[in-house]
C-alpha cells in the first residue's frame, strides 16, 4: 500500500511540476481574449502559481508616452474575484536628523504600508543616497547621504470597478508601478496544497499613445 501511495505521489508530483512549468506561460494563453485595441506584448508580463488567500506584488515600469493594458487572469479553481490594485511607487526624501536617529527610523516605519517582510526594496531605500536631494541646510555630520522612504499611492483598485479583469491607461510620465494581486480565500499557514493553488497570469501590453485632438 505504501508503495502504491508513493507511486501515486510521484505521478501527482510530476503532473504538478509540469503544470507549474506550463504556468509560466499562462498569461499568453489565458489572458488574451479581451476585445480591446490590439497592443504589443510586453516582456514584463508574468504568470505564477498562487494560493487562496495569497497576495503577490509585481513591480513594473510604465514609460512615458505609452498606453498600457494590464489583464489579470486565473484558473477557475481560484474563483472569479481576483483583486488587483495598482500603486505608483515613489521615493520620498526623509530629512536626516543628526541629533535623533531613532526618530528617523520611526518615520520609516510609518511609511505607508510598505514594510512587508518580503519586500527587499525597503532595505534598498534605507541606504538610498541621492545627492541631488540633499538638503543643504541639513547638518554635515550625517554619515550616510540623505535617506528615502518609499511610498506607494493607490491608483486603481479593481474591486471598485466590478472586479474588472483588465485596465487600460496612458502613462504621461515614466512611472514605477506595483501591481498587488490577491486571491480570495483563507491563507494557509502551513504548506500549500496543490488543489488550493492555481495559475494567475498578468498580461501586459503596450502601444505608443495616440495624440488626440487637432
Amino acid at each position: 500500500m505504501r508503495k502504491f501511495i508513493l507511486f501515486v505521489g510521484i505521478i501527482v508530483a510530476s503532473v504538478s511540476v509540469q503544470a507549474q512549468t506550463e504556468c509560466t506561460t499562462y498569461h499568453r494563453k489565458g489572458c488574451g481574449d479581451n476585445d480591446g485595441v490590439p497592443m504589443k506584448y510586453d516582456s514584463q508580463s508574468k504568470s505564477a502559481i498562487m494560493a487562496k488567500g495569497q497576495t503577490s506584488k509585481f513591480h513594473m515600469v510604465a514609460y512615458n508616452g505609452q498606453d498600457y493594458r494590464i489583464t489579470v487572469c486565473n484558473e477557475d479553481n481560484l474563483g472569479n474575484e481576483i483583486r488587483f490594485k495598482i500603486y505608483e511607487k515613489q521615493k520620498v526624501l526623509i530629512k536626516p536628523k543628526v541629533e535623533d536617529y531613532s526618530e528617523e527610523s520611526t518615520s520609516e516605519e510609518t511609511t505607508e504600508d510598505y514594510s512587508s517582510d518580503d519586500y527587499s526594496s525597503d532595505d534598498y531605500s534605507e541606504d538610498y543616497s541621492d545627492d541631488s536631494y540633499a538638503d543643504e541646510s541639513a547638518p554635515a555630520a550625517v554619515n550616510k547621504g540623505p535617506q528615502f522612504k518609499i511610498v506607494k499611492e493607490l491608483l486603481y483598485d479593481n474591486s471598485q470597478d466590478s472586479y474588472s479583469s483588465f485596465i487600460e491607461f496612458t502613462a504621461e510620465g515614466s512611472i514605477s508601478l506595483i501591481i498587488e494581486v490577491s486571491v480570495p480565500g483563507e491563507e494557509s499557514k502551513m504548506k500549500l496544497k496543490v488543489r488550493e493553488t492555481g495559475c494567475v497570469g498578468l498580461l501586459i501590453e503596450h502601444m505608443k499613445s495616440e495624440k488626440t485632438g487637432f
Binding site: 494560493a51 506584488k57 519586500y119
Partner: peptide, 10 residues
C-alpha cells in the same frame, strides 16, 4: 502534493 511558499515579490 503540497507546494512551498515562495517570495511574493516579482
Amino acid at each position: 502534493a503540497v507546494v512551498e511558499k515562495q517570495s511574493n515579490s516579482y
